[in-house]
């Protein structure tokens, strides 16, 4: 029966042939949370989402949504979603399509409301096969919204959108989420996760490598790297500079991974004025993930680190 436990996943594993896409994922999302599932391509985000939605059966582990198995929760209308891939079916207008999906749910949002929230009102009378990519994406969002479900799952929802479309999308999402709705979205943009989620779950290579409030995760992965040429660098001295987290020395070149690269540079130059060829760049998600995963030797002990399917 239905309880108020939100999304619970325990020990999820899923392989596709020799590829271990998900290798032991535990999740606990409370009702009302807005959670980003952040990770590079092949991290296992979509596979995890598919198992949460009941579209894929885990090889091991289990999922409950509000205390129910996914299939049961889906039939109870608890779930609405926007999958990563997919287009719309034809021979219907946008409004008819949204009406069709809404009619399947016990307490749908009024169709016009779903259309205006998603920004699809303007072309609601157009046939679904005569839309631009951005418009199609808005309609797919309307289809997810009209469900008016407790849990809204969005798998890379802004992939096909331009900058403006992205902004509109998140404004609408925010509006929807303020009503105490639970939202789980997958993304590989740290920026999106940072701006719209209360909590970030970081995935890499089929595992959760970090899980916490957005600010905390951002501090972990939002590192910058300062590279410079500095012959005869002293590892210990560099490590004590403020803002520096780790130091690497490769011959004459150094790499400082910094929590605050501005502070680090100000400290570096007075003490080592001979430093030259200085570059500062964002560590990027991929690099940040590598860093995080390197701290966990069990991740490297697996031979087949092939990319999971999207």
């Amino acid at each position: 029966m239905r309880d108020n436990s939100g999304v619970i996943a325990e020990g999820l594993h899923k392989s596709f042939g020799p590829v271990k896409a998900v290798r032991g994922v535990d999740l606990n999302i409370s009702p009302g949370e807005v959670v980003a599932l952040l990770g590079p391509n092949g991290a296992g985000k979509t596979t995890t989402i598919d198992m949460i939605l009941g579209l894929g059966q885990p090889d091991a582990g289990r999922v409950t949504l509000w205390g129910m198995p996914p299939a049961e929760a889906v039939h109870a209308g608890i779930v609405g979603g926007m999958l990563q891939t997919g287009t719309l079916i034809g021979q219907l207008s946008v409004r008819e399509l949204v009406t069709m999906v809404g009619s399947l749910y016990p307490e749908p949002l009024p169709v016009e409301e779903a259309l205006s929230l998603s920004g699809a009102s303007e072309f609601a009378d157009r046939p679904t096969n005569k839309l631009s990519g951005g418009q199609t994406q808005r309609v797919r969002f309307a289809v997810a919204l009209v469900a008016n479900s407790d849990l809204l799952v969005l798998d890379e929802p802004t992939v096909a959108l331009d900058v403006e479309g992205r902004r509109d999308f998140w404004v609408a999402m925010r509006e929807f989420a303020t009503a105490g709705r639970t939202v789980l979205f997958a993304t590989h943009y740290l920026e999106e996760a940072d701006q719209f989620a209360d909590r970030i779950i970081l995935m890499a290579r089929g595992l959760i490598v970090a899980d916490g409030p957005t600010t905390e995760i951002k501090a972990k992965v939002g590192l910058r790297a300062v590279r410079a040429t500095l012959p005869g660098a002293d590892h210990g001295a560099l490590a004590t500079l403020s803002g520096v987290q780790t130091v690497e020395i490769h011959g004459d070149s150094i790499v400082l991974r910094c929590t605050n690269s501005d502070l680090a540079l100000r400290a570096l130059l007075p003490r080592f004025p001979e430093a030259r060829d200085i570059e500062v760049h964002g560590a990027g998600l991929e690099e940040a993930f590598l860093e995080l995963t390197e701290e966990r030797p069990e991740l490297d002990s697996v031979d087949d680190r092939a990319e999971g399917p999207q």
Partner: peptide
Amino acid sequence: AAERTAGWTRQMRITPLH
């Protein structure tokens, strides 16, 4: 066949429709 190719079948499978 068209709905499968469009990914619409998967979309339907996450609605309450049996």
